[in-house]
């Protein structure tokens, strides 16, 4: 059975997410730190690799408290935890945490992808809540079997802004974007992938059959 850890920032409802994973046959544990497990050998990373096939960063909360929760025991706690290439799915706020920072707060982000998170322009209704279609840029792993133009559910007030070309020395530039979504004239990165990190600005657990496909795809990545 695929075992996934959901990181709880202590901010809200992760019931739907846990439920959506369990419905696809995974076992989902809720964790609230990256400390070593009691009874383990004291090495958090080794414990994680032994116990979990993937990590979920859910999408409910505020940037600073969530970042502080994730880095409570130092940022290296997170890096070590997923350091063996553990697949990480960041949803909404979880995806926003992949970047170097956010206008929502002052804490530094995880910095695994280049870019900043900015407030949605005030020409839009904010928070943006609703179904939007995806323009798939490249299939990646999460979007396997998902049709171009598929509808997914968004709830957000912020969006990622990525540098267009890959930054000098390689790394994760704008080419990490696997799908975009357009709100009138605003184009937002809807899904990103880089190494073992997969992020969605929308909520797969609230996106009907299309979202279920993505949850299954992520669990497939976890099993690989």
């Amino acid at each position: 059975m695929t075992r996934v850890a959901i990181f709880d920032y202590g901010a809200g409802n992760i019931f739907s997410l846990k439920n959506s994973l369990e419905r696809e046959g995974a076992a989902a544990d809720v964790i609230c730190d990256f400390a070593a497990r009691p009874g383990g050998d004291g090495d958090a990373a080794a414990d994680a690799a032994k116990h979990y096939d993937g990590l979920l960063l859910p999408g409910v909360g505020n940037f600073d408290p969530a970042m502080r929760a994730v880095t409570r025991d130092s940022k290296s706690g997170f890096s070590d935890y997923v350091g063996h290439g553990m697949p990480v799915l960041g949803i909404c706020l979880g995806m926003e945490m992949f970047f170097s920072g956010s206008q929502e707060g002052s804490e530094p982000g995880l910095g695994v992808m280049s870019g900043e998170v900015a407030a949605l322009p005030d020409t839009m209704k904010v928070p943006h809540m609703g179904w939007n279609s995806l323009q798939i840029r490249r299939r990646g792993r999460l979007l396997e079997g998902v049709e171009d133009g598929a509808w997914v559910y968004f709830v957000h007030s912020y969006m990622a802004q990525l540098p267009a070309p890959p930054p000098p020395g390689g790394g994760a530039g704008g080419d990490v974007v696997t799908a975009e979504s357009s709100y009138n004239d605003v184009v937002i990165p809807a899904a990103v992938e880089y190494r073992n990190y997969i992020g969605t600005q929308f909520h797969p657990e609230k996106s009907g059959p299309v979202g279920r496909q993505m949850i299954r795809n992520f669990l497939g990545v976890c099993r690989r």
Partner: peptide
């Protein structure tokens, strides 16, 4: 909440933070 995967709003008789928290913890969005 266990059988759907679309957004879910619940209301009725909410007058305290405790009421709101209970609804969200039960699985409403």
């Amino acid at each position: 909440a266990s059988v759907i995967d679309i957004p879910f709003t619940v209301g009725g008789g909410v007058s305290t933070m405790e009421d709101a928290r209970n609804i969200l913890l039960s699985g409403a969005d």
